[in-house]
Structure formats: C-alpha cells, structure tokens
Amino acid sequence: MSLNFYTLDTDVVIDGYVVTASTQYQFALDKFVPLIGRLEIQRDALNTKFYSRLEDDIVRGCVMPPITIALIHSFPARKQTKNSIEEYISQNISNAFVLDGIQRLNTLRRAALKDGFDATRAIHVNFIIASSRDRLLYRMITLNNGQKPMSARHQIDVLADAFFNFDGVDLKLVAEKGKGRVRAPESFKKADFVKGYVAYLSGSVNIDNQKIIEEKMDELIASKIIDSDIPTSKVEFMDIVELVNKFSKSGKLNDWIRVQNNFIGFCVGAKTSAPKLKSVEVEMIEGAISRFEQAFSSINVSKVNLGKVRRELVAYFFQNYQSLNKLDEFELLDKISDRI
C-alpha cells in the first residue's frame, strides 16, 4: 500500500512543485488523518447533514474530491527528477500539513467504522511543495481568496503555530488562552505574533482597522498579500524572527520589541532592511531606538491616533534605517513629523 504518482509540475512562483497522486483509503487513514493533529489551532470537525451524507456515500462507493497536502522544502538549485520528488514526498509524509480536506478526512475516519467500508478504494491527493513558509502561504491565499470558509488571516493563524518551531532561536510563543505550547526567555502572545506576520506578508501596518467591516478587512489584507513581492523577496519571515531574537538579548530592546505596535511596525519595516540590520551591533540599534523614542515623544498625542502613528513611523524608521539612524533627535523629529 503506497502512493501512486501521476503528474509533476514546477511552480516557478513559489519555487516548488505540484504533484498529483492517488492512494487507498487505508493509507489516508494511516498517514493523512494523523497530520490533522499537527496544527494547534484547527477548525472543529463538523458533523453537519452534508458530512453525514458524505460518510454514508463513502461506504456506498463515492469518489471524494482530491485533498491537498503541503510540504516545505528547498531543493538544490539543479533541476529535480520526478523520482527524486516522489521519493521526498514518500519519505516525508509525517512532516506535511493538510491544506484542504480536513473535514473530508475526518468524515473518512468516521466512515471507516461502519459496516461495508472498503479500505482499498482510491482517494486522490494533490501535493504542494513550497521552498518556504511565506511562499506556501502566498500560494494558499491566491488560491483561496474570495472563498468564505477561511479568511487569509485565519489561514495564517492556523498555520503559524505549526510553521514556527523556532529551532535555534530563543523566541517562544504563548497562546493567550488554552494550553499554549511553549517552544523555545521572554514570550510573545501568539495573537501579537500572528499580527506581525500578517503585517509582514501584506507589507502594511493597517491590518486591523476597526472602521472597516471585518469581512472587507480580510479581503483587503488578502489583496495586499497577493500584490506583495513575497515570491521574489530575498527576505523570509524567519529573518525577522532572528532579528527579534537578536533584540531580545538587549535589556532595552527586549521590552520595546514586544510592544504590539512596535512589533507590527518592525515586521513591515525590516522586510526591506533585514539583510543590513543583521550586521548592525545591538548597541547601535539601542542608540537609534533611543533617539527615535525621544523624537516620537514630541508628537502631540491629542492630534493623532497614537497606535496607528507608532506602527507607521516604526515601519518607516526601519525601512530607512541606514539614513535615519544617523540623525539626532531633532533631525529625526523633522523627518518623522512629515510622515504624519
């Protein structure tokens, strides 16, 4: 019992591959159903009339629509053979994610308990292999934008917990409620972290405007992500995480970066300047942030939306870090006041 592979296509945009295959129900029960538990945040299994009917139809012999399984792996630059891709998929199923078909797999699991279930019937599956987490999320959002079941923010929220294990960094992520899994000194609220990731992906600090209907806000964010330069960007979100980890070594920057508005602004700004920020000494960044905060303290808080302005100016500061970090308090105040 194994996977039968049919087609292999290269997805140049996400620097990866799309593979079509089939297998038997028993393989799906053994290999795919356990993948659902890999995601901490998961939509509850639905037991609606539709899925109850599908459960019966599976026993009667229907063919389910293909499910979609994703893996993240960056292959060497040389062109891969069909056999090497198929071998990678077969050996790494346990590291995959179910992108589409969670409810169908839950339904299959229930159907398998019924009399008459045939575990040898075929189930079809599409595999998507992307070279990075960012590119995979980009592909998901371009495919799913406009559909009702899952907004762009929900997709990111669901997958962020599974994607970011922070191997090799000191950052840890804690859910605000429920049994948060602590993975890796000071912690981020998961909600703040996801907001920073959404801001990074969309290239915008305007990700939770209460003046915009939530549904339209989701569509706006998805549109910005689609229009962003994720597939061509040389910066990955883990580059931002590594910088946050670097800041966390500093007593002065540790608390500063964990303020939600600072973090969101930084995620947007560092998307442009991350490669250069990596080579800057922490003491230099401490001094630059100190001058920024001195300049920011001169803004008339009664005249602005302080949270919104902080996000925008932090993003602007780090987007233009090379030139702005050299300015004194009043030169910097002159620059940032023009952005308000």
Rank of each mutant, 00 (worst) to 15 (best):
L171T: 14
N254V: 01
S202A: 15
V182C: 05
F247Y: 15
G307N: 15
F317E: 08
S132M: 05
T7H: 12
K326A: 07
S248Q: 15
N320L: 05
I67V: 15
L306M: 12
G251Q: 13
F266R: 06
A222R: 04
N145R: 14
N83T: 14
A175S: 13
V158S: 03
Q322F: 06
L3T: 01
F163K: 07
K224D: 12
E86M: 10
R104F: 06
N126E: 15
T142H: 08
M64F: 02
I207W: 05
E214L: 12
V125Y: 08
P231Q: 09
A270R: 05
E281R: 13
L46E: 14
K211Y: 04
R311C: 11
F32M: 14
G287F: 05
A222Y: 09
L105V: 01
D255S: 14
D338W: 00
L327V: 00
L99T: 09
E286H: 07
Q155C: 02
F163N: 04
G61R: 08
K278E: 12
V235G: 10
L277A: 10
F32E: 09
A270L: 11
S290K: 15
S297I: 03
S302I: 09
Y6P: 00
Y197W: 11
S187K: 10
S151M: 06
I72V: 15
I69M: 05
I226G: 00
I213F: 10
I69A: 06
K246G: 06
A45H: 04
K114M: 11
G61L: 08
S298H: 12
K79N: 11
Q155K: 08
S187Q: 07
R110C: 04
S2M: 12
P185D: 14
G116P: 04
T142D: 04
M140R: 05
F166R: 03
N95C: 03
I299R: 02
V244C: 13
D9I: 08
F127W: 10
L277S: 09
K211V: 01
